[in-house]
């Protein structure tokens, strides 16, 4: 006899229950681990299959943003920490976390296999590096030909007037790649000359992107002629069929390391440690080595198209300097170029 009312009662009761369920949601299951990462999405996909198999009892909640964004978020949440694990975030930023007292020193199982360059000097270390990435130019040969652009060979070339409006590079605020490029230029040329160079580069820049891989992807799509990015994307884009040529600048590429760390919050979570152990295992290293020329543990084959010995192509990075001066450099950069 009563029709519409009944159905609506059900609906509204249902809604109440659902809302309740949604509210109750955050009660975390025991073996949950919250991971903040800046690793490229495509790679994570690959890694994910592996860790899901290796750690079947782990429920991983992952947040991925570009290096600067994920770092800023982690820093902003320092009083209300959400992350248990930092995975594959630039060593420079990890160092900043350490200095801010947000990390718990932890020696993951198998640490002894990791090359000295790839770890925090302290023992136990606050961070452990897993791979090295370096700045590289992506040149879209088709666009370059159409626009009559010569292929640049060095950082110096990029400031030539022909390239005006054809360049993109990542914003060092949000992107680790952007920062390592800027930091490497400043370290190499000294601050006075370095900023002068960046001023000139700014004249040619069409846009600063949020993510480090986006400049290369823009170049690959033909939206821009040349993107300052890092080597992995360049190869990837080429593989996917874009007319992309990778250039490692003559003066030496800037580089940084993707590093792992245990947060203060994660210190109480055994699952976090389990994940960090896995993240430097041989299995993981082998996966990293599919994309990077140098990984934390020596002896893995170098991917096709990358230099066999990266020490020949990179300009040495003083991580401490990069970390210590990051805020100052970014503020200066912001003042000069942020529009």
């Amino acid at each position: 006899m009563r029709r519409p009312g009944n159905r609506l009662t059900t609906l509204v009761l249902g809604a109440a229950v659902l809302c309740g369920a949604a509210l109750a949601g955050p009660a975390l299951a025991k073996d949950t681990v919250v991971i903040y990462t800046a690793i490229e999405s495509e790679q994570i996909t690959e890694y994910k299959k592996a860790y899901e198999k290796a750690l079947p009892n782990l429920e991983v909640k992952m947040l991925r943003f570009s290096t600067g964004d994920i770092s800023a978020r982690f820093m902003a949440e320092k009083d209300n920490m959400q992350a248990d694990v930092i995975w594959g975030v630039a060593a420079t930023n990890t160092l900043i976390f350490k200095n801010a007292g947000l990390l718990e020193a932890y020696a993951p199982k198998g640490l002894e296999r990791v090359q000295p360059l790839f770890r925090d000097k302290a023992n136990p270390p606050s961070w452990v590096g897993i791979d090295i990435y370096m700045s590289a130019f992506c040149v879209n040969t088709e666009v370059a030909k159409k626009k009559n652009l010569p292929t640049p060979a060095s950082w110096g070339d990029l400031t030539k007037p022909v390239y005006k409006g054809h360049l993109v590079m990542p914003n060092p605020h949000s992107s680790g790649t952007g920062y390592l490029s800027v930091a490497s230029i400043l370290q190499r040329m000294g601050e006075t000359e370095g900023w002068k160079y960046l001023d000139a580069l700014h004249q040619n820049m069409a846009e600063y992107t949020k993510s480090g891989s986006k400049p290369c992807k823009d170049a690959a799509a033909g939206e821009r002629a040349i993107g300052v990015s890092f080597e992995y994307v360049a190869l990837e884009m080429k593989k996917k069929g874009s007319p992309i040529e990778m250039v490692l600048p003559k003066e030496g590429s800037g580089y940084d390391m993707e590093a792992n760390a245990l947060t203060k919050k994660g210190a109480k979570n055994p699952a976090a440690k389990a994940f960090l152990d896995w993240a430097i295992s041989n299995e993981a290293m082998a996966l990293y080595a599919k994309y990077f020329a140098a990984v934390g543990v020596a002896g893995f084959p170098v991917p096709e198209g990358l230099p066999k010995d990266i020490s020949k192509v990179v300009y040495p990075n003083d991580f401490d300097w990069s970390a210590k001066n990051r805020d100052r450099i970014l503020a200066e950069w912001q003042k000069r170029y942020a529009k």
């Binding site: 909640k61 570009s66 992107t209 993510s211 823009d218 799509a221």
Partner: peptide
């Protein structure tokens, strides 16, 4: 947040990362 990503935000992030 981790685990509560939404489609429109995913579009933004993918575009941000150049995965148009």
């Amino acid at each position: 947040a981790p685990g509560t990503e939404l489609a429109a935000v995913a579009v933004l992030l993918m575009d941000d990362a150049g995965d148009t």
